[in-house]
Computed example of a mutant assay.
Amino acid sequence: MKKLFAILFLLVIIGIAYSQAPSVIKEKVTNSKDTIKKEKTNILPETLIKDTVFDPNVKYVLYKKNGHASYYADKFHGRRTASGQRFDMHKMTAAHKKLPFGSKIRVTNEANGKSVIVEVNDRGPFVRSREIDLSKKAFMAIASSKGAGSMKVTIETIVKK
């Protein structure tokens, strides 16, 4: 009787967990039963567009050309930044030595012309030759080579008109 009760209890817990699971997991389960293959959608451009929205009401002011940029190590994910926020390597954030917290800046890779808009929420990098540390998501969005650890960038501050 106790085993039956325990099994019933586990089935209820699993049912509750499944009903509260993200819809992505449910779609994968239902799609595996489909016999028709569906095209995969690339979510990367959508996230970049959401994070780097073009706004005609802002002006870009050159801060530094030929700056040396790198990205945070994975070990810092979840730790507190100097601004008090938790560092999230999946957000468009950056660390800069002097720019105020909350500043929005555009960082452009000089090798390929790709750029992202990031928010300064930490101090650093604490290496004399480096100008800015980007989150991993921001760095990979503009990197020419995904294996690179640093790049030459142009940094522009964003000022409302």
Rank of each mutant, 00 (worst) to 15 (best):
M1T: 14
M1E: 08
K3E: 02
L4R: 15
A6I: 13
A6N: 13
A6F: 12
I7F: 11
L8K: 00
F9G: 14
L11I: 15
L11N: 06
V12E: 08
I13E: 00
I14T: 12
G15R: 06
G15H: 09
G15A: 14
G15V: 09
G15Q: 08
G15F: 08
I16C: 09
I16F: 12
I16W: 06
Y18V: 12
Y18L: 12
S23K: 15
S23C: 03
V24F: 11
V29E: 00
T30C: 00
N31T: 10
K33E: 11
T35K: 12
K38Y: 06
E39G: 04
K40Y: 02
K40C: 02
K40V: 10
T41R: 15
T41S: 00
N42H: 00
L44W: 05
P45R: 09
E46H: 02
E46F: 08
T47R: 15
L48F: 03
L48R: 13
L48D: 09
I49H: 03
D51C: 01
D55R: 13
P56M: 11
V61T: 13
L62E: 09
L62K: 14
Y63R: 08
G67L: 01
G67Y: 04
G67V: 14
A69L: 06
S70D: 06
S70M: 04
Y71W: 10
Y71M: 02
A73Y: 06
A73N: 15
A73P: 02
D74P: 11
K75T: 05
K75G: 05
R80M: 11
G84V: 14
R86K: 14
D88W: 07
M89G: 10
H90S: 11
H90L: 10
K91Q: 14
K91V: 04
A94W: 12
A95T: 03
K97D: 03
K97Q: 00
K98C: 07
K98L: 11
L99N: 07
L99Q: 05
F101R: 09
G102Q: 09
I105P: 03
I105G: 00
R106D: 07
T108N: 05
A111D: 12
A111Y: 05
G113R: 15
V116C: 04
V116Y: 04
V118K: 03
E119L: 01
V120S: 02
N121C: 06
N121P: 05
N121R: 10
R123P: 05
R123T: 00
G124R: 10
F126G: 13
F126I: 03
F126C: 04
R128Q: 12
S129R: 15
S129L: 05
R130T: 01
R130M: 11
E131R: 09
L134Q: 08
S135F: 07
K136H: 09
K137R: 11
K137C: 01
A138L: 01
A138M: 08
A138K: 12
F139H: 07
F139C: 05
F139R: 08
F139A: 04
M140A: 04
M140Y: 06
A141W: 03
A148C: 07
G149Q: 14
G149T: 13
M151L: 08
M151S: 01
K152E: 03
T154E: 09
E156M: 02
T157N: 09
I158G: 05
I158D: 01
V159D: 03
K161N: 08
